[in-house]
Structure formats: C-alpha cells, structure tokens
Design a protein around this nucleic acid. Structure first.
Length: 423
RNA sequence: GGAGAGAUGACCGAGUGGCCGAAGGUGCACGCUUGGAAAGCGUGUGUACCCCGAAAGGGUACCGAGGGUUCGAAUCCCUCUCUCUCCGCCA
C-alpha cells in the first residue's frame, strides 16, 4: 500500500491516479475513516492512560475502604476501554481494507490510458522474418513434432494444461538454465522457491488470493495458495526485516512453477501455450535503495532484451499505460515478441514484464532499511527472465523451417544438446 | 503423526502480579585516556502509532501470535504458530 500519511497531503494526486488507472474507489470514504480512526485512537489511549494512572494509585497503602472504592472505579475504566477498542477495531478493519486498494503512484512519464493500444512502443529489435512458405503456429508445429500433448492433459486436468514431451522437456530445462547462467554472471543470487505461499503473503505482493476476479488458486483447508509467480516468494523472502543498506541492491533469480486460474480468458489470442494454468518461469526480483530503483528498472529490461536477443527473437519494448499497470506497479515495461503464428499474419505477444513497484510492496511486507537515523522501505522490482511457455512459442514459430523442423538458436544449443528438432 | 523442551531488545541472558521498556553482559556509537593501538573509564544505544509543534515535547502499544482472568500481566489461564530433542513414517 501507499504511505497513508500522504492521504491528506497528496489527496488530489491520489484521486487522479485512481482515475487514470481506471479504478473505482471511494477516496473520500477512506479519508473519513482515517479521521475517525484517529479520534478513536485518541479516545482509547486517553482511557488507557487513565487506567495506568489508576493502577499506580493502587500501589499505595490504602485503607480497605479506599481500596474498594478504587477497584470499583477501575472496573468502570475497564469497561469503557473495551467498548472503545471494539469500535476502533471495526473502523480499522474497514479503513485498511479500503486503503489497501489504493494503487501505487504512477511514474509521471507512464502513458495515460486504459487499453493495450495506449501502451507506448519504445523500441524494436530484430526484424520479423519473411517466410517463403506459410508459417505454422506453435500448436501445429508441436503436434507434428510430438512435443506437446494438450489432449491427454484434458483427460487428466482439463483444458489449459499440457504435457511436454521429448525435446520440449529439454527445452524447458535448457531455457531455464540459459537464463540462470546469464543472471548468475550479473550477480543475481539463484533461488528455487516454494510453489505455494500464504495468502497473506500473496496479498502483500499485491495479488488477490480470493474473490471472483482472482487469478490465484487457493488450497483447501489451509491458508496457502499456489503461486502465480516467484515474485511472491522472492519478494517476501525478506519480509519483516530491517536490511543493511550495504547489501542493497540485492538481486535474486528464482525458479518456480506458476499457477494461474485465467478464468474467463479465452479466444483466439489465448490458444495453445499462450495462456495456460501452469508453466515454469525464471523470475528476477531486486531490492534497492529508493534512488536506485529507476536505473535498476532499466537494467532489468536490458537483461530481458539480452536474453531474447540471444534466442534471436524479434521483439519490441513497450511502456505500459496506467490502466494496464496493476496496483503495485509504478512503471512497467513489457517485451512483446513477434509471434508469426499469432492471428492471420503474425502479431506481437507479451513474453516478459518488468515492474518497478517502488515501496508499495515493501510497505505491506515490512521490508525496510536503516541509513543513519532514517528508516525507509526498500524499493522492489520484478521482471521476467524467461517464462518458458511463451518463450517456447516464440522459438517454435520464429525458428521453424519449411519442412516443419525447428532450428535451435546457437546460444541455447549448449543447454539443449541438440541444434534442431525434427522427425 | 506421537512425546518432551523452549520462544524476552542487534545478540546472549535475568526476570512467577504493581518498583519492568524490561537487570547484567556482549556488540555498536560518541567521549576521556594514549605517541598509536589494546585494555580501562564515562555517556548513549528499539520499533510502531497518536497528539502537539518551528524545534523541543507528551501519550499509547509492543517480552512468539491471538484471546481470557485482574483495579493492574513479560509474569496466571486458554488457543494457535514457530524452533529444538527423541520416536514413528517417508521421496
């Protein structure tokens, strides 16, 4: 959440931000609750002070009569404290539940808008390949090469799951390993993370574990959910900690499975591997000092570009518009790969996403640092190194040959052990 | 899963109803001392929230978490979580 002390001082800015993100939130109500909470706190604290003063009087030598009198008075105070606390609790529950929905501030240069078309294209790399044959989409290629079996998965798990077979298995592992080597060389600490997390942790990162629009699977009879990304587990790794500024920036690269409900997501652009309930991903997560988060954000995008340049995938970098940011993000850059099998003529498809969430998540997770006498929240950034399912789409579709075989980009060959896939 | 032990400040560790935000020690910071260092001596050393304010200040809470008993809880009771040891099971 944002710093709620700024609710008053930056009220108009916060309200404007909510509008530009196309969100609906009664900010006046939040402010009203804040004031109500404040006066209730004053009331209960005053009563507690009375109780403490009163208890001190009891320590003196007293006649039985006086003592009895004071006990009666004490009981009265106790009752008033109880009812004041109860009222305070009610107000706080509502206050924090509403205030927690206030989104992070947006970067002043982030494009304003609600739809994908409002995203700002920053640059392109590579040239979409011109085929001298009709390119196939990844579904067709994978079927013919017996790399992915969606039909069998339907029997076992239902739609939007899949089995990887043969070289696809090694591709999954190779892509992860390829990304990890690049990240390790850049000072990232490699991690394998739990695929589950407490719902409170997911919520702290900014995911809604419950509710109809939630993208998160919850586990019955526990307070756990399946993670949608290692951002959750990596971000919470330092929860509740007071970090030494000397160790910042701290860079983590974590492997996890990612589970997403994707309820209601269907249609042409969601087919095949593009939108699935489970996939493997290498995620970058960085904790920095506030003054370093913007440059670190650029660095993360640079790493993502390096990874996909190595895979020889044409892409463009997009500055995500405010309506598409997601509550925790201050600014977000997506990399969209060229996918020749997408739509009729090929199209761009998101393969990575790098967000600067500034102190928004750190405040929920209580990750702070102390510099001299100042205590502040760290800034947290996250970015996709490789989301295997989508990376695989782009490799299959971009590097297909007329005979249906697939060329493996040189950078990946050391990790796959083969330079092409053919039958 | 069963049995037992435990959880106190940056760390170690005392504390079984009011004198405890918490002894003592270590560490850390500053000062004295020294040619310099060590030792020694002295002083200081948490977080969150609320009020007021230019600053200073005042208040409340926090001894794993949540509930309860009491005029008053680190201390008594209940529930939970976590850690450690032993047993069982297991990739």
């Amino acid at each position: 959440m944002i710093d709620l002390r700024e609710l008053n001082t930056r009220f108009d800015e916060i309200a404007e931000n909510i509008r530009s993100r196309n969100m609906d939130l009664d900010l006046d109500e939040v402010l009203r609750l804040q004031q109500e909470r404040s006066s209730l706190i004053q009331e209960t604290e005053q009563l507690r002070q009375q109780r403490n003063d009163h208890a001190k009087q009891m320590k003196q030598k007293l006649s039985a009569d006086e003592r009895q009198h004071l006990i009666e008075a004490g009981k009265g105070i106790k009752g008033r404290i109880a009812s004041a606390e109860e009222e305070l609790k009610k107000v706080e529950t509502r206050y924090f539940s509403l205030a927690g929905r206030i989104p992070n501030y947006a970067h002043p240069d982030a494009p304003i808008g609600n739809e994908e078309k409002d995203n700002l294209e920053l640059r392109r790399w590579g040239t979409p390949r011109v085929f001298d044959f009709t390119p196939k989409d990844h579904m067709e290629l994978a079927l013919e090469l017996d790399l992915i079996d969606f039909d069998a998965a339907v029997k076992v798990t239902g739609t939007k799951f899949y089995y990887f077979k043969r070289e696809a298995v090694l591709m999954d592992l190779a892509l992860q390993r390829y990304a990890l080597d690049i990240l390790a060389a850049k000072g990232f600490i490699l991690m394998m993370t739990p695929d589950m997390a407490k719902e409170s942790v997911a919520a702290g990162i900014g995911f809604q574990p419950r509710g109809s629009e939630s993208n998160i699977y919850t586990v019955e009879d526990s307070d756990l959910c399946l993670v949608g990304t290692a951002e959750i587990t990596l971000g919470a790794y330092h929860a509740q900690e007071m970090m030494d500024p000397e160790v910042l920036p701290r860079k983590y690269a974590g492997i996890s499975h990612c589970f997403r409900k994707e309820a209601g997501a269907a249609g042409q652009y969601s087919k095949g591997l593009y939108r699935v309930h489970q996939f493997s991903k290498v995620e970058m997560l960085v904790l920095t000092l506030p003054e370093h988060s913007e440059s670190m954000h650029q660095e993360l995008v640079g790493i993502e570009e390096e990874i996909f340049q190595g895979l020889e995938i044409p892409y463009r970098v997009v500055d995500t518009c405010t309506g598409d940011l997601g509550a925790p993000a201050y600014r977000k850059y997506d990399i969209e790969a060229w996918m020749p099998g997408r739509g009729d003529l090929g199209d761009w498809g998101e393969i990575t996403s790098a967000s600067n969430c500034t102190d928004y998540q750190a405040r929920n997770l209580k990750i702070r640092y102390k510099r001299n006498q100042d205590i502040e929240h760290v800034h947290i950034l996250n970015g996709t190194a490789v989301a295997v399912s989508r990376a695989l789409i782009s490799i299959l579709e971009n590097h297909q040959r007329s005979d249906g075989s697939i060329r493996i980009p040189d950078a990946l060959v050391p990790y796959t052990g083969f330079s092409e896939i053919r039958r």
